[in-house]
Design a protein around this nucleic acid. Sequence first.
DNA 1: AGAGGAATGATAATCATTATCATTATCAAT
DNA 2: ATTGATAATGATAATGATTATCATTCCTCT
Lengths: 129, 129
Amino acid sequence: MVKLTAQRQAILDLINASNRHWDAEELSRALGDAGQAVGIATVYRGLAFLEAEGLVASIQLADRKRYERADKAHHDHMVCTACGHIEEFAHATIEALQEAAARERGFTISGHQLVMFGRCADCTKGNNT
Amino acid sequence: MVKLTAQRQAILDLINASNRHWDAEELSRALGDAGQAVGIATVYRGLAFLEAEGLVASIQLADRKRYERADKAHHDHMVCTACGHIEEFAHATIEALQEAAARERGFTISGHQLVMFGRCADCTKGNNT
DNA sequence: AGAGGAATGATAATCATTATCATTATCAAT
DNA sequence: ATTGATAATGATAATGATTATCATTCCTCT
Ligand SMILES: [Mn+2]
Ligand SMILES: [Mn+2]
Ligand SMILES: [Zn+2]
Ligand SMILES: [Zn+2]
């Protein structure tokens, strides 16, 4: 019975309405534009709360943390260093091999993050930037 | 013909002398303790330089970037969230599958980072913190 | 209606990293 | 050795994302 306040619900709705990977600032700005302003501090707290509840997922990039909906199957990311595009991919075998590697070493895994950096298909062809 | 200044050489020597994963602050402090103080700004610049030259490697964790020697084969990491221990592992099959996944999507990969979080073998058994 | 506790929001604080800029080191040419 | 050009250093200010503070507002229960 997670209790969602109006601002937490607004954050969650916005995230669930697309496949974007949002940062706190973007969410705060978008909510303001939509007429339901939420203080930036509340956005940070709301995101932490929602993630703890498993209602949103996140990826930690070099500079900032980005949030996305959690109602998709687990996946990892490829980040285009030219245009910022974030592409998703899931690979069951990689996941299984990771778990095996951890098990071999007695490591109890609670999470992982695999990020590949490079140029997306568009940026590889065209010469965007 | 990379030209190493005294302070860059000192940073590199320190990194190469162990298998630790250092952050800038730790390096600056250790250099100071060793009697060859290097300003923190110079440490940051030196690390960027050394990494660009391929003389040191790095991993970007949530809060800070950590540097290690580059004269080891590529590997990824498991970070213990209890004691901070960083364990290394290499997995050729995972690497190959990653590249295949990128290729399938037209992504030109320039780098990647796979980090697993959890409790190391010691912290899983004993109850260190 | 009122008390207690949680949530909000404005703002200050924190902390890693980068930018500035005056000073110093390096090196080639005089 | 002295110059001058150029790069590096180091002290310190600035930046930017995130967290902490704290007064105010909102709920929920009695
Ligand atoms: Mn995603
Ligand atoms: Mn390592
Ligand atoms: Zn791109
Ligand atoms: Zn541990």
